[in-house]
Design a binder for these strands. Structure first.
Length: 581
DNA sequence: AAAAAAC
């Protein structure tokens, strides 16, 4: 870390002979999983390596020295190969201006592509940002207090755009600082807390952040509080409890920012205990998730409720499939679209691999073997269903693997909070979870992600493995696949290729899944629990957990009106031409 | 394609 700061700090005073030793240390350590980089999990420092944008601007010695590292050569080789294939025409816009002759991080790989009218210029540093856009000094101080020193690419580009009150669709890889990209400009424009404003036309919530899971909303809330320190803004993490207090209009009108999941807002809106007419900034985090079938009608209702004529709408994600992008763009007004790197592509820092496990029965032994060898905790393990998450966590624990936790939405709020907390405090070594943890969660220490069950979409894959390799650290992602997963193997393999890594030849030679096979896939029943027939005596515990999860679901189905409609809609079989392809 | 998640 230290050497990195020397290299990426002020280039003007860089003294080669003085720091030569550090440089060597750095370049040697780098190819071997970057030991020099990952010693301080609490640091928010963004290594220059992650900072694609600044690479194309800086003209100091740093490029020269680090370009001698083995990894750089490797990266350049990969890029060359890709260029030969001539893929990806879409990302060609800004190429010329950002190109560097001897840059070790390829601008092709990480270039920033912006589309739209009158795009504000990107800013290189927080200092320039403060001078040009008059970021309030307390916010600026809170930034440095939290350890943010240099903006990442997406921050450099998105912050000025949001400060200029423009609508924005921002796509940037996992772990590249998207949250701060919207929180910083929104908080910077809030100015005085609403409670202190005498103007009677000013009332109620001024900024609204929507996220798909409670845990993510919670995490965004924490970030927001850090940024807001020293000011009397009311920043509310919306829950049943806080929603109740907002039923009082006097309380409600003194709220500056709400961070919430969609359905909670819809419920309050319909109960008449929430007024979004004064919202000036509406942010959708994990936008593609929020715009998919199950959430869409809720989001549309919320967007409609934010009826102020000057409401600014901003959407962020690491992935944005064409269908979701169209919905998003139709929602935005005169939008700017910013893409960092390649869309739907994981960071090259994540070492990805595919492991063949034949069938479901073979998964547990494979995982036990995996954990019998040295591994780097904490590890995140993904399963396809809640019962499988529960039972796998049990199996691992029974087999003597220490500090295994489980987290899925069938658990109580308290259980979920406790799991997250143990994870944040390093008490949990292996967290077995469902898709609920796939997006946005920032556990800085996560070194390894294991897809125990095959992800059900490319987006899911990209987000799941994006729980590691965050903020410039390296990470490792292992994906188990069985014979049944074969039809979808090739698309994941292509994602790995796109990230600049290799996959076995035979996978690439797999045929595209036929319609028949796809149909068959739909009929394959996933085993209910992990290794269900083998462990007698623990079945009761497993069943109990599953029953708890099941009863919660049934209860949910019985109560939620909006939910009911949506899930029915999903069950309707889709006609073939209806799909986006 | 398909489970999960949202109250």
């Amino acid at each position: 870390m230290e050497t990195f700061q020397l290299l990426s700090g002020s280039g003007v005073h860089f003294n080669k002979s003085k720091y030569e030793k550090d440089v060597r240390l750095f370049t040697k350590a780098k190819p071997r999983a970057g030991h020099a980089l990952r010693d301080d999990p609490s640091s928010h420092e963004i290594p220059a390596e992650l900072d694609f944008f600044k690479y194309s601007r800086n003209t100091t010695g740093k490029r020269k020295y680090s370009s001698s590292s083995g990894q750089s050569v490797e990266k350049r080789r990969r890029i060359d190969e890709e260029d030969e294939e001539g893929d990806d025409v879409e990302e060609d816009l800004n190429e010329g201006s950002h190109r560097q002759k001897d840059s070790e991080v390829s601008p092709e790989k990480h270039r920033v592509t912006s589309k739209g009218r009158d795009i504000p210029e990107a800013v290189d540093t927080f200092e320039v940002l403060q001078e040009e856009y008059h970021i309030p000094s307390h916010i600026y101080q809170n930034l440095s207090k939290s350890g943010y020193k240099h903006p990442t690419s997406i921050q450099s580009h998105a912050v000025p755009i949001i400060l200029k009150s423009r609508d924005l669709a921002a796509i940037s890889p996992t772990g590249t600082g998207k949250t701060l990209s919207y929180l910083l400009p929104v908080m910077a424009t809030l100015q005085a807390p609403i409670s202190s404003i005498k103007d009677v036309t000013e009332f109620g919530v001024r900024a609204l952040v929507i996220a798909p899971t409670r845990e993510l909303a919670h995490q965004i809330h924490n970030e927001c509080l850090k940024l807001a320190q020293g000011r009397k803004w009311r920043i509310v993490l919306f829950s049943k409890a806080t929603a109740a207090t907002l039923a009082d209009k006097n309380v409600r009108d003194k709220v500056d920012v709400i961070i919430s999941t969609p359905l909670r807002l819809v419920a309050s809106l319909q109960a008449g205990s929430l007024d979004l007419r004064n919202v000036r900034h509406l942010i959708l985090d994990e936008a593609d998730r929020l715009l998919d079938a199950e959430f869409l009608s809720q989001i549309q209702e919320l967007v409609a409720a934010c009826s102020h004529p000057n409401v600014q709408k901003v959407v962020f994600s690491a992935t944005l499939p064409a269908g979701a992008e169209k919905v998003a763009m139709d929602m935005l007004r005169d939008p700017i679209r910013v893409v960092v790197g390649l869309k739907d592509t994981p960071l090259p820092l994540i070492q990805q691999s595919l492991t063949y496990v034949a069938d479901d029965q073979s998964k547990l032994p494979s995982l036990l073997t995996y954990f019998s060898k040295p591994y780097n905790p904490p590890v995140l393990v993904f399963t396809s269903t809640q019962p499988r998450a529960s039972s796998l966590a049990e199996e691992l624990t029974m087999n003597g693997i220490p500090n295994v936790d489980c987290l899925h939405a069938g658990m109580t709020k308290k259980e979920r909070d406790d799991s997250v907390s143990r994870m944040r405090h390093g008490q949990c070594w292996i967290l077995v979870s469902t898709e609920v943890m796939a997006r946005g969660m920032d556990f800085k220490g996560v070194r390894e992600v294991i897809n125990y069950d095959f992800p059900t979409s490319i987006q899911s894959y990209v987000h799941r493995i994006g729980r590691t390799g965050r903020a410039g650290r390296e990470g490792k992602a292992v994906t188990f696949f069985t014979d049944e997963d074969a039809p979808f193997l090739k698309s994941i393999a292509n994602v790995i290729l796109q990230a600049g890594q290799s996959v076995p030849d035979w996978i690439l030679k797999l045929p595209k899944p036929s319609k028949m096979k796809r149909k068959a896939m739909g009929k394959v029943k996933r085993p209910e629990v992990v290794n269900n027939a083998r462990k007698i005596g623990r079945q009761d515990a497993i069943k109990r957990r599953d029953m708890i999860a099941g009863s919660k679901r049934r209860k949910a189905k019985a109560t939620g009106g909006a939910t009911q409609r949506i899930s029915e809609g999903v069950k309707n079989p889709r006609v073939e031409e209806g799909g986006s392809g």
